Computed example of a mutant assay.
Amino acid sequence: MSKVDEKAFKLEVAKAVRMLEKIDLLDMNGHVSYRIPGTDRFFINSRKASRASVTAADIVMCDLDGKLIEGDSEPPSEYHIHTEIFKRRSDVFSVIHNHPHYQTVLGIADVAMKPVFGIGSFVDKVPMYEKSSLVNTAEMGAELAELLGNEVTIQLRHHGTVIVGESVKAAFAKSVFLEENAKKQYDAMLLGRDIRVLNGENLVRTRDTAWQPSIIQKVWTYHEEKAMKEGALTGIEDGIREELLR
């Protein structure tokens, strides 16, 4: 892996963290990882770095046991979420642990998430992990990963969600629209009537047309440009230029 490639990977992870924090899917906690193709290593935002001001230089490299390979800080204490999923899912290259409001509220109320919104229609089976504390042991990470199975997302009751994707951009886009789907489901339920859920051929076609690679890129570009316009990505490359010159 060249230094230029490494910079690009780190920058993408850092951008995802800042953009998720900007739209209130992350807060002071939460993390984004990216598995380096063809290796047993991954990038993740460091434990010490603020999610609001994380830079590419704050992204550390670890192996699948969570051992620090590169960086000046340790990974988040819940790195086991990422390592245990990566060990089981060869199709997954990015894992995001969010703390979204509406998905968490539905979990507290024991209401299953349903596909109710076009671009959020990939919602299907959403397993529920009942241990609400930090997932800070290998045993808990393995339990969560086994329960996730081949699904896209899993809820952590009273805590948050974990979502997986084939890339950072895909996992980011799914994070955005999982929460939007949950918000629309919550709001519709407030009307006190039965909600209409996408199903049958309509659901299949909606899913097929809503998650093309071009749409994933469109979601990423929209949030990236909005974050840039609002100054939320200022200084995100700090420290990384010096690394390239070494």
Rank of each mutant, 00 (worst) to 15 (best):
F9K: 01
N45T: 09
G66A: 04
T83C: 10
S73V: 00
E143I: 03
V176T: 10
V123R: 08
M189R: 12
D27S: 11
N202V: 13
N136L: 04
V152D: 13
L20I: 12
L26R: 02
V176I: 13
G38A: 06
N199E: 13
K87E: 07
E166T: 14
F42L: 07
V168N: 05
I163M: 15
E21V: 02
M128N: 08
M19T: 01
S167P: 05
I23G: 02
L190A: 06
L144E: 09
I96W: 14
R205K: 11
G38M: 06
L203A: 04
V4D: 11
G239C: 04
D238I: 07
I236M: 07
L190E: 06
L190C: 05
D5F: 08
K226S: 12
I163R: 15
T206E: 01
G141C: 04
T234M: 08
R41K: 11
S50M: 01
L245Q: 09
D27C: 11
I154R: 02
S77L: 15
A171L: 09
H99A: 08
E143Q: 11
K10E: 00
F9V: 00
G118M: 02
V219D: 14
R157K: 15
L26K: 02
S77F: 13
A210P: 06
E70Y: 10
D58Q: 09
F9A: 03
E6N: 03
G149K: 00
R157W: 03
F9C: 01
S214E: 12
A49Y: 01
S214N: 10
S46P: 07
D91N: 12
D208F: 00
L148V: 06
P100D: 13
K87Q: 10
G200W: 01
L156G: 15
N202S: 10
A142G: 15
D238W: 02
I44Q: 05
A188G: 00
V60I: 15
D187R: 10
F122N: 08
A227D: 08
R205S: 10
H82E: 06
V152S: 07
S133M: 12
A145N: 11
V32I: 08
K131H: 14
K67C: 00
R246L: 09
A182M: 12
D124E: 14
S33Y: 04
R193M: 14
A171D: 08
M113H: 12
G165C: 09
L134H: 03
P76T: 15
L11R: 10
G107V: 11
R51W: 01
E12K: 12
A112T: 12
E84L: 12
L233E: 14
E70Q: 14
I96A: 08
I216H: 02
E230L: 05
K125L: 11
F43G: 01
E224A: 02
V123S: 07
S50N: 03
D24C: 05
L190S: 09
M140T: 02
K125T: 14
N199C: 13
D63P: 03
L190D: 02
F9G: 00
L198V: 11
L245F: 10
E78V: 00
F43H: 02
L134D: 03
G200Q: 05
R41P: 00
N202K: 10
E225M: 12
V197N: 09
D91I: 03
G235E: 06
E230N: 03
P37S: 03
P37D: 05
H223Q: 06
I240N: 09
L106G: 07
A109W: 06
V168W: 06
G192K: 11
Q103C: 11
S90E: 14
L134R: 07
T221N: 14
L11K: 13
